[in-house]
């Protein structure tokens, strides 16, 4: 639509947008404020906007004991983080093959996560954070690998079987999760697999598979058939053509889908809540801080909520374009 031009109209539009923006962020901003307050300040009946910010809540959440040389350790941790994220951001300007840089950054992050509990005395919350990372990464890798194969097959095969599988997947995507999870719980308990990462990962892959194959299929449909056909004329078989020719140009689509898988796995509550007993992920761990009557939980709940949100916000800032594109693509194709 053409834009409103009158100054009054412009002011009105921005006013509405700003009000909606405030409505969207107020819960988050308020929680951030609460997380830096002492219990006394946080429980004050008239909200305090000016107070002495403290880090105690975060320390209590992440650390079992505060190390003496905390400042030095924090400095080196931040330095390592800045270097790794910087490498990721500017990879394309460095004259080394980018895949080597990405590999290095991945190993760097893994080493960092592995190393932290060996330097400082971390609390349980850190373990839940690691569980979340393991489960999310595992789900993304497995889900995208088998999803790509299936999505490609479904995009290229025009037979009857293809349509039947797609419709069945659509039906299963819509069903309430509990109908699957309660049997998983029964199987898990009977086979003593409950509380293991592998059970959570495999079941997460399964419940997200219908969505993944639909989305990947829609991206594969956009790639013209001629591309792999010319490769196959040159003597490659279909799998080689798929791996060497199609996948390299599919990256944007794969990243979009991986982003949604990440959100789904990172956010999953019900499945993890039922299938684990102590190996929780962040959402399940955090829900524990809210139930009790103990007012001490107020600031801890705030600090844990903010801690769980920051990584997601960072990832989305990197990939916002792909997220919006994925939402739009999924919608336009139905």
């Amino acid at each position: 639509m053409e834009k409103v031009k009158s100054p009054a109209g412009r002011v009105f539009i921005h006013a509405v947008l700003i009000v909606f923006a405030i409505y969207s962020v107020v819960p988050f901003l308020w929680t951030v404020l609460q997380s830096f307050k002492t219990l006394r300040d946080a429980n004050s009946r008239t909200p305090k906007f000016i107070f002495d910010p403290i880090l105690d809540n975060y320390e209590e959440l992440w650390l079992r004991s505060v190390p003496e040389n905390g400042a030095t350790i924090a400095f080196f941790l931040l330095l390592a983080l800045v270097i790794l994220i910087g490498l990721l951001l500017f990879a394309r300007y460095i004259p080394v093959r980018n895949s080597w840089i990405y590999l290095f950054v991945t190993i760097g992050f893994a080493a960092l996560l592995w190393g932290i509990p060996r330097v400082v005395d971390t609390a349980k919350f850190y373990d839940y954070f690691i569980n979340t990372i393991i489960i999310t990464t595992g789900t993304i890798v497995i889900s995208i690998s088998i999803g790509c194969l299936a999505g490609y097959g479904l995009a290229r095969y025009t037979g009857y079987a293809s349509v039947v599988i797609l419709i069945a997947a659509l039906a299963f995507r819509a069903l309430p999760r509990l109908a699957f999870i309660l049997p998983y719980f029964w199987i898990g308990t009977a086979t003593h697999l409950i509380d293991t990462h592998i059970l959570v990962i495999i079941t997460l892959v399964a419940v997200n598979q219908p969505f993944t194959i639909w989305m990947l299929r829609s991206f594969f449909m956009e790639i013209p058939k001629d591309i792999e056909e010319s490769a196959m004329v040159d003597g490659a078989n279909r799998l080689t053509a798929f791996l060497k020719v199609i996948i390299p140009i599919m990256w944007p689509g794969i990243i979009s889908t991986a982003l949604f898988t990440l959100l789904l796995a990172y956010n999953e509550f019900l499945l993890v809540r039922i299938l684990t007993q102590s190996n929780w992920t962040l959402p399940v761990a955090i829900s524990r801080f809210t139930g009790g009557e103990d007012p001490r939980h107020l600031t801890l709940a705030a600090a844990s909520s903010v801690s769980a949100t920051i990584p997601i916000i960072l990832v989305i800032l990197f990939f916002q374009k792909q997220l919006v594109k994925g939402l739009a693509a999924g919608a336009v194709k139905g």
Binding site: S24, L263, N267, L282, P283, V284, S287, I316, L323
Partner: peptide
């Protein structure tokens, strides 16, 4: 800013 409620973990 508008996307924030959507990307936050629902529990959180």
């Amino acid at each position: 800013i508008f996307l924030l409620p959507f990307i936050i973990v629902p529990i959180v």
